[in-house]
């Protein structure tokens, strides 16, 4: 059964200068336990999709259903992991990871215990009382992921979580994130503009057109889920998937139309 259905969703931004249509008739669905990749040229509207899915924006047209309920009314929970780790410099890692619990008023001893357990399990046990500036980029990313897991979300949304890391860290953090999400049996959507990353992590890849984004094609990735992302890169089908997606991706958008996009 699908946990998430996106039906004919369109969305536009309005600025004084212009109206920017970011999404047009976007439809796709995600199964329970699936790791779905959304890939598209930069500025095509990937972050917009995630903001809609996390209920921060409302679609101009169409509907988003999470466990059969409209997303903004749904009791289901969504965990958003933004493009940069966005850990708060003035909080310790423990406090950072418990941010969601505080905001949702679920700061019970058991949940805190769960948070600390996750930190220990994924190699941050020695850094619980440290501040983010004392951690490496990869560790910070792991902490950010744990922050999203602590609230026990039904759906995880990852917005280019590795884009700020250098290549080597990226490969190992990729492996970590994959392992964590599989072990915790989470449903996740990963947004990326990196083809290799998407193939090595995801069970299904949704290729978006350039702006206004719409689904060009859905590609199931049939490489065993038991392999780590690094091992998947060795698989002989990997290159075929790469070529296929490469041919589907269009030229990069010109991001320069709106002021906001320049910040990226």
């Amino acid at each position: 059964m699908s946990i998430l259905t996106v039906q004919n969703v369109s969305f536009s931004y309005h600025t004084v200068q212009e109206e920017v249509q970011a999404l047009r008739n976007l439809s796709f669905s995600v199964e329970e336990g699936e790791f779905v990749g959304i890939i598209g040229p930069s500025c095509c509207g990937k972050t917009t999709v995630l903001n809609l899915l996390s209920g921060l924006f409302t679609p101009t047209e169409g509907e988003i259903l999470l466990r059969n309920a409209p997303i903004r009314k749904s009791a289901s929970r969504i965990g958003l992991m933004p493009q940069r780790d966005q850990l708060f410099a003035w909080r310790t890692i423990e406090k950072n990871v418990c941010l969601g619990l505080e905001l949702l008023r679920e700061n019970t001893p058991e949940r805190k215990e769960y948070a600390i357990g996750l930190l220990r399990k994924y190699g941050l046990g020695d850094f619980i009382k440290k501040h983010p500036s004392e951690l490496s980029g990869g560790m910070r990313q792991r902490a950010a992921l744990i922050r999203t897991l602590v609230i026990q979300p039904d759906l995880l949304l990852l917005d280019e979580p590795f884009s700020a890391l250098d290549f080597q860290t990226r490969l190992s953090v990729c492996d970590d994130v994959y392992k964590i999400i599989r072990q915790e049996k989470k449903t996740a959507i990963l947004v990326s503009h990196d083809i290799n990353e998407s193939i090595s992590l995801c069970d299904k890849i949704i290729v978006l057109s350039k702006r206004p984004a719409t689904v060009k094609e859905e590609i199931p990735v049939e490489i065993s889920r038991e392999l780590t992302p690094l091992q998947k890169r060795e698989d002989k089908r990997f290159n075929q998937y790469f070529k296929k997606i490469w041919s589907l991706l269009e030229d990069t958008n010109d991001c320069g139309t709106s002021k906001i996009s320049k910040k990226e």
Partner: peptide, 29 residues
């Protein structure tokens, strides 16, 4: 203050008041 941080707090159901106290003010010490 980084809008992505504000988005993060709002996705965790933080209202403007909590955003002020837990994020915006703390970030500006």
């Amino acid at each position: 203050v980084d809008t992505e941080k504000i988005m993060l707090m709002r996705s965790l159901k933080g209202n403007k008041f909590t955003v002020m106290i837990k994020l915006v003010f703390s970030a500006n010490i």
